[in-house]
Write a protein that binds this DNA or RNA. Structure first.
Lengths: 154, 154
DNA sequence: GAGCGTATGTCAGGCTGCTGACATGCAGCC
DNA sequence: GGCTGCATGTCAGCAGCCTGACATACGCTC
């Protein structure tokens, strides 16, 4: 069946937005006691798993523009949670590193977000379901992103 | 296994955000030729399936605040795509209806978005997978939303 | 070496959406 | 009837994020 119209009740896209909005709200409330916003947390988490990322790479990983990430990095740097070299060792990219305090804050924030995610995934029956959901979401993202590329370039 | 930390590569929440961001971008490019933003389209689609919704109900359905929806409604009303009575027939809620032009614009927009969603779902193997993804997303949204309620109220 | 394309960092301006606040209308309970 | 609680519509103010622009640095080609 190839529906040529969207129906709100059965639309996967609508359910996707619904789940993303709910997760965003829950993360906001979980991170507020730590004084972190979701973009700030995303930045820390990316740096935790991939130290030395540049601002542009962080921006792509957090789904924001370079300019927005620039503001996030400035704030986190002033709070002493991360450090950047004053000059670029190669090209223009400034490799960013978490400070000791940044690692500590990330550790606490990551645990808080993990609890939220666990509660969300409690709605699923088995770990197989979780793995399949993850795989399907990544596949959907790639499919629709490539389609967007075609539309943008064409 | 109960991970107490988030790992970007395996996080369902990250994949969810990724898919939602990609879908949002693709919808933006698909709707731009029609002169519609995503919130405007969402408003039309909700009215199409449920005529007579109030601004507050539309806001909840589109995952924005009443204030944002108010601005969307004002714009669409000036373009003649929807109509609201000058006075509330009951309480304060103003039941909103699509105009003939609004129905026509929605029809075209809905087809464009359906094409995007079809391309996204092309990444999945069967219609069973689509149905399961839809069901799992709705379940996740409910689970994390109720958790957020508890956190907010407590 | 010169030129072009691309990627990055950064600044300025504007637009969107949110928080906070207030007035209005309905339902409940005393 | 009067009061409280709640939902809705609307206004003002503010933060966040984006678009546009520019300078710089690398890789490639000629």
């Amino acid at each position: 069946m190839q529906p040529d119209r969207v129906h709100v009740e059965s639309s996967v896209g609508y359910a996707l937005k619904q789940a993303a909005a709910a997760l965003r709200g829950a993360m906001d409330t979980a991170l507020r006691p730590l004084g972190l916003t979701v973009p700030q947390y995303a930045c820390l988490e990316l740096l935790g798993s991939s130290p030395g990322l540049s601002a542009a790479e962080l921006a792509r990983g957090a789904f924001v523009t370079r300019q927005s990430m620039h503001a996030v990095l400035t704030g986190l740097e002033q709070r002493g949670l991360l450090a950047r070299p004053p000059a670029a060792p190669r090209g223009r990219a400034l490799p960013t590193q978490l400070t000791e305090r940044g690692v500590a804050v990330l550790d606490e924030a990551s645990r808080a977000v993990a609890r939220v995610e666990q509660r969300m995934l409690g709605a699923l029956a088995s770990t197989d379901d979780v793995a399949r959901l993850h795989r399907d979401l990544v596949a959907c993202a790639e499919a629709v992103a490539s389609a967007d590329d075609v539309a943008t370039r064409g």
